[in-house]
């Protein structure tokens, strides 16, 4: 029996009635090509879900909860004022996000400096700045070709809303991850946090490094403007010394 793509799709989406569903399953058992097509559809669906599902665990911002509790509820014929200036709130929110990231930075900065000697960062005028191998990697290392055993691993690079170049990184020891943005000729560390996960063996380092801690993810989400740089744009930015 031949099945159209739409029937296979409906099978994966659990939209078929029981007899058709059974017919597809019987045919799948006999026909490896059919089974392969269904597996590909299923994999796509699972991949999309896996990418977006972690967002369900993000805490809902307090102002949205507050709005749902308190915004005026109207009956059908009362005109509602829908247009509102959102600029003020956005600025307030960005300020709060910045304050939160600074706080995380300061706390972990102290932890790093106390716990691991001088560490990968120094604090200058209240701002954490990358130093030593971390600073060198941020300036010179490309995500596209870095050694699996490098002490610093670069994640993604992107332009921030303020126009600066920013890069995520993770350190092998101490196990830390963070986000740094280039400003004033130095790498200002926006977030530095303990990297989760088991101590990585060399072979597993790449995978371990690609799951960023939530504080880093939140900072990237708040800062990123557009898409991450691709390999070519990353190399071009390095040539220009990370000057926009």
């Amino acid at each position: 029996m031949r099945f159209s793509d739409e029937v296979l799709m409906a099978y994966v989406d659990r939209e078929l009635d029981a007899p058709t569903r059974a017919a597809v399953e019987a045919a799948m058992a006999e026909d490896p090509e059919l089974a392969r097509r269904i597996a590909a559809e299923r994999a796509l669906r699972e991949r999309l879900r896996a990418a977006f599902d972690p967002l369900l665990d993000e805490p809902v911002p307090a102002y949205l909860l507050q709005l749902a509790r308190t915004a005026e509820q109207r009956s059908a014929h009362t005109p509602a004022p829908l247009a509102r200036a959102r600029t003020g709130r956005s600025m307030w929110r960005e300020g709060l996000a910045l304050a939160a990231s600074l706080l995380v930075g300061v706390l972990f900065g102290h932890w790093v400096l106390r716990g691991a000697g001088l560490g990968p960062v120094v604090t200058r005028a209240g701002q954490m700045v990358a130093r030593g191998p971390l600073a060198q990697a941020l300036t010179g290392q490309l995500a596209a070709n870095q050694s699996a055993t490098a002490a610093v691993r670069i994640g993604i690079s992107f332009r921030s809303n303020a126009g600066q170049y920013c890069r995520t990184f993770s350190l092998r020891a101490p196990r830390l991850a963070g986000l740094a943005c280039r400003a004033g000729g130095q790498w200002q560390v926006q977030v530095l946090t303990r990297a989760e996960g088991p101590a990585a063996a060399a072979g597993h380092y790449r995978e371990a490094a690609s799951s960023m801690p939530p504080a880093v993810v939140a900072a990237v989400s708040a800062e990123i403007s557009g898409s991450p740089l691709d390999a070519r744009a990353e190399a071009a930015a390095r040539r220009r010394g990370w000057v926009p």
Binding site: S157, P228, A231
Partner: peptide, 24 residues
Amino acid sequence: AVPAAENVGDPAAGSPEELLCVQD
């Protein structure tokens, strides 16, 4: 024209890079 971004890094399921890749 927004460039078609091919993300660098190592997309793993549930990672932010993977999310950006799927969003792209």
